[in-house]
Amino acid sequence: MAFSFFGACVSSIQSPQHQLVGTLYRDHRSWLLAWLRRNVACPHRAEDLSQDTFTRLLGREQLDVPREPRAFLVQVAKGLLFDHFRRAALEQAYLGELMLIPESEQPSLEEQQLVLEDLKAIDRMLDKLSSKARAAFLYNRLDGLSHAEIAEKVGVSVPRVRQYLAQGMRQCYIALYGEPT
């Protein structure tokens, strides 16, 4: 088994949290990679998701020793898999919509790529919201639903919808201007 750059970087960091990630990496990375390869068609994507799993752990403010390390790693990897499939579906939906536009009116390949990058950035921004907040924000901004209609669809109160919309607007602000000071 080759010891990657990631593993070398993790082992050189001395904090207990980073050492824990290094131990998880050393002890379970090959198992996680095999699990990902069974769940993802592309071996390169499985490799990327494996590395992303450990990178996400390094980014956590606090990390406790998991009782079941493999179940814990699968939980993190599943979240990344879900993000991957959601973004792939978003890309496919965009490309499907492009097929409906007459060829003479289609944006250039460069413009298409820029739009895809913007869609992915919006998706990452909305990913910071809870599922209900994200749904409320999209119902409001894309479908134009009222607060009461959103409350009924999402199964929350109207004041909660207002909170969700404020959270969505805050994420938009952060995406455009950065964290408020």
Rank of each mutant, 00 (worst) to 15 (best):
M1I: 07
A2F: 09
S4A: 03
F5H: 14
S11L: 07
S12G: 08
I13K: 08
I13M: 11
Q14W: 05
S15I: 03
L20N: 03
L20E: 06
R26V: 03
S30L: 13
W31Y: 15
L33T: 05
A41L: 06
A41W: 05
Q51P: 04
D52S: 12
T53G: 01
L57P: 00
R60L: 12
E61N: 07
Q62T: 09
L63C: 05
R67C: 12
E68V: 12
P69L: 06
Q75Y: 13
V76W: 00
A77S: 08
K78H: 12
D83L: 01
A88Y: 13
A88F: 07
E91W: 05
Y94L: 01
L95Y: 08
I101T: 09
I101K: 04
S104H: 10
Q112D: 09
L114V: 13
V115D: 14
E117A: 11
I122F: 01
D123H: 10
D123S: 12
D123C: 03
M125C: 13
M125V: 06
L126M: 12
K128N: 13
K128T: 11
L129F: 10
K132Q: 15
R134H: 10
A135V: 08
A135H: 10
A136F: 01
F137Y: 10
L138C: 09
L145E: 13
S146Q: 07
A148Y: 09
E152Y: 04
K153Y: 13
V154I: 14
G155I: 02
S157I: 05
V158T: 11
R162G: 12
Q163E: 15
Y164Q: 02
G168H: 00
M169V: 00
R170S: 02
Q171H: 07
C172G: 05
C172P: 01
Y173H: 07
G178R: 09
G178C: 07
E179Q: 12
P180I: 06
